[in-house]
Write a protein that binds this DNA or RNA. Structure first.
Lengths: 113, 113
DNA sequence: ATAGACCGTGGACTATAGTCAACGGTCAAG
DNA sequence: CTTGACCGTTGACTATAGTCCACGGTCTAT
């Protein structure tokens, strides 16, 4: 898939995708043709972009997004250590959810005052 | 309370507090003494800083934080319109929680693969 | 073959958030 | 009255994230 298609499907600008690529959030990019230097972005990058979009809503930096994506890549191989890392990230997300619920409850209390 | 005390209590640097003040996230600051120009930061600002710290974890910008704080200020007066605004913010937070739960579930699935 | 849509690269530019250093003033302990 | 810990202001500086533009090359339909 070329960048234009990827951009449309993910609703993320070409420039931003290229920025992400620069920061290694987009991977396995090739230039399959000898006669031009157009890049090919494998399908997996669409999934990656959607994950990034989701994570960014919660203030994840690009660096943090890259780490999460790296864990996602590495996890399927069942390496125990890596699984632990992913689990601790999960615990973090759980904590974030709990904190957010606290914010929510604070807002509710204020509304009920 | 002076900025040093506020800084220690909130664990936020003086510089950052002054930045927040500039952006009107810190309010009702006075200079109670004629003989110096030291500022006094009322107690309420400590609460504000803790709210800001919490909101920032979820990627709220300073502008968004200011809006939430404004709603918190305005809400106790039971104005229906303002209550609606606060409620829509609540809905937003609810959505964020749901999205975060999705991220969590995605991570869990990956872990289970 | 040419117009319009696409592509890659590089650099400039913006906004946001925060830090840092320098300056001079204030305060309290000794 | 001096020293060290504060205080306020200003402006420079950094990092992050994203946008925009100009350049020249490529592709496709006409």
């Amino acid at each position: 898939m070329r960048i234009g298609e990827l951009s449309k499907k993910a609703s993320i600008s070409r420039d931003t995708i290229r920025l992400y690529e620069k920061h290694q959030l987009i991977v396995n990019v090739t230039r399959p043709n000898e006669w031009n230097n157009y890049k090919d972005y494998p399908e997996e990058n669409l999934k990656r972009l959607l994950v990034i979009k989701c994570l960014k809503k919660f203030g994840f930096t690009l660096k943090e997004c890259r780490e999460v994506l790296l864990e996602m890549e590495q996890n399927p191989n069942k390496d125990d250590h890596k699984r632990k890392v992913a689990k601790s990230k999960l615990a973090e997300i759980d904590k974030q959810i709990k904190d957010l619920i606290k914010v929510k409850n604070t807002l509710i209390k204020i509304l009920e005052e």
